[in-house]
Structures are given as C-alpha cells and as structure tokens.
C-alpha cells in the first residue's frame, strides 16, 4: 500500500479535512454559534481515514458520539454536516439530530450515536442484511475503549462470530473513557485480546499510522467480503481534547498530552513526512491541499450560517413513516 501514491494522498486529504472541520467546529462552539455537545475527533483522524479508504458506497458504517470524522471519511457532505451542527433546516437531519445523530443512509452511514456502544448491534444487523441478500458489502462498527466494556460489545461480537457476519469492529482506543484512563476501566492492555473470547481474529495497530490502519482494515474487510466473518481491530490513539468541548481534561498528565501531540506521534504530521520522504508531494503541494480544505470548510460554515432555521411546526414531523 505504501507504493500507492494516490491512496496515500487521498487518506492524507481526508485526515486534513477532518482536522480542519473539527478545529472549526470547536471554535464555532466556543463562540456560542450552536448549542449541545461537540465531541472532538482531533488526534484520531487516521482511523476513520484509513478504515474508510477501503470502503465502497454500498458498505455501511455505524459511528459514535465522536462521529464527525467517520462521516467525513465515508463521504459525508461538509455543508450538510455543518448546517446540522447549527441546527438548521438544511442540515443532514433537518436540524433534528445535531452533532450526535448525523446520518446519510444513502452513503451507508447509519448514524452517529449518542449512546456509547450502541452502534455495534446496529452494524451487526446491517452486516446481517448484506449476508442475507448475498451481497459482498460489509459493515463497520466504530467504537471506543469505553464501549468495549459494554454488554453490546459482547453480544455483537458473539453473534457476528457465530453467524459469520461481514462486519469489522474498529475499536478506537484513545486512552480515555470520558475521564477514566484505560488502565482504570479494564485490566488488559490490548483490547484486541478480547477477540479470543469470540473465536475471531483480533489485531492491534498504531492508531496514528494511517497506512498501518488501512492495511489492517483492508485485510479484515476482505475477510468479511469473502464470507469468513468478523474481525476486531484495535487502533491505539490519543484523544487530543477533553471528552466534550468544555471539559478541561484535568485528569490527563500534561507530559502524556505533550508527547502525543508532538510531530513524531501526530498522524497528520507523520503522514506529511512520509509523503515528502517518498517524494509523493512537496510541502507546497500539501499546503495547497490544506488551503483548499480550509476553503471547503469555510464554505460549509457560510452555508450553515446562511441557512434558515427549521419551522417550529417541524417538531411534529418524521416521528412515524406513513
């Protein structure tokens, strides 16, 4: 994969798009532009970008409360996303979902999710639908280290294993379940060890190495497409921010924070170094990508700000399908 210049540049661009969108969302939220919660994906961009680089439009993903990155990597429209954060009528969910419920069913995005660990059963069901219809589509469940303690993790991996479903469980181990360090909420180091309990493969990869993630996901996805069943992939990373915007994250050791944010750890800085080293791009080209993405995000903000609010009567619609 390291030789595939186009794919590497595409993954890089996706990571930059996620980071730029997230940084903007943080700033807008801090400025009081919209209410609710923002759970920032900063620092974890490589996982969404690497995994989704192997997906087709007819594959499904189930995302999390920290979901902007997954939506962007699966092809989500930035303008519709930003408008949803603003609660506008033009947003993905017509302003009814907000940050934690953005979805694009046509792109196979079965939603971000406000309940930790709730995406795994849904992804398991979407994978069941793929198998039932005898298609070679797959489903991806993104979830965190905290969610790996939930009963839904156990029930989903177990069912997917015995039914041999085409689902890949992507654990984004960012070291923190809200304020609890991984060491305080589970007595293991590698969450991928839990795969053994379900008789499925489990691997742990550097969650800040987009190429390693893409390769591990590719193997798991191909396995799923061939009908060989699920895989658990743990990506070890670091949440740059607090659990939500406004959380000062006083529970983090500043030294750890500094180490993880340094250029030798950060996924985007590492990828830039790789691309320049391989002579796939010069710094000026990378800067051009960043500038284009900034414009794209600014356009999304402009779209959101200029969009109308929903009509109050909209509160009553979309409860049931007629």
């Amino acid at each position: 994969m390291a030789e595939n210049k186009e794919k590497l540049l595409e993954m890089y661009t996706t990571m930059v798009r996620i980071r730029t969108f997230e940084q903007k969302a943080i700033d807008l939220f801090a400025a009081g532009k919209f209410p609710g919660f923002v759970h920032s994906y900063l620092g974890e961009e490589a996982i969404a970008a690497g995994v989704c680089s192997n997906l087709r439009k007819d594959d499904y993903i189930c995302s999390t409360h920290r979901g902007h990155g997954h939506l962007i990597a699966k092809g989500g429209n930035l303008q519709l996303m930003m408008a949803e954060l603003f609660g506008k009528a033009t947003g993905y969910c017509k302003g009814k979902g907000g940050s934690m419920h953005i979805a694009d069913v046509d792109l196979g995005i079965l939603g971000a999710n406000g309940i930790v660990g709730a995406g795994m059963p849904i992804a398991t069901g979407a994978a069941f639908a793929c198998k039932y219809r005898k298609s070679d589509s797959v489903a991806i469940a993104f979830f965190g280290d905290g969610a790996s303690d939930r009963a839904t993790f156990h029930e989903s991996l177990n069912l997917a294993s015995i039914w041999k479903l085409p689902v890949v469980f992507i654990c984004e181990n960012n070291g923190w379940a809200i304020s609890n360090a991984q060491t305080s909420h589970q007595n293991i180091t590698d969450i991928s060890d839990r795969a053994t309990a379900y008789g499925i493969p489990g691997v742990s990869v550097d969650g800040n190495d987009v190429v390693a993630i893409a390769e591990a996901a590719d193997a798991a996805i191909e396995r799923a497409r061939k009908g060989d069943g699920p895989t658990l992939v743990e990506c070890k990373t670091w949440r740059h921010r607090g659990h939500f915007e406004g959380d000062p994250a006083i529970y983090k050791d500043p030294k750890d924070q500094e180490e993880w944010l340094a250029d030798n750890k950060d996924a985007i800085a590492r990828m830039e170094k790789k691309l320049v080293g391989l002579k796939y791009a010069g710094q000026d080209y990378l800067d051009k990508i960043k500038a284009e993405v900034r414009e794209e995000v600014e356009a999304a903000v402009q779209f959101a700000e200029q969009s109308p609010d929903p009509e109050p009567a909209e509160v009553l619609t979309d409860v049931y399908t007629a």
Binding site: Y60, V105, P121, G125, F128, Y132, A139, E155
Partner: peptide, 15 residues
C-alpha cells in the same frame, strides 16, 4: 440487546 439491536440495523438496511 443484539436481538433487537441487530434488527434495527437490518431494518435500516432494508430487511
């Protein structure tokens, strides 16, 4: 949980 949860995903995916 996964009996009902998988049904949600399968239904959203068209079954």
């Amino acid at each position: 949980a996964v009996i009902v949860g998988h049904a949600v995903g399968a239904a959203a995916a068209g079954l």
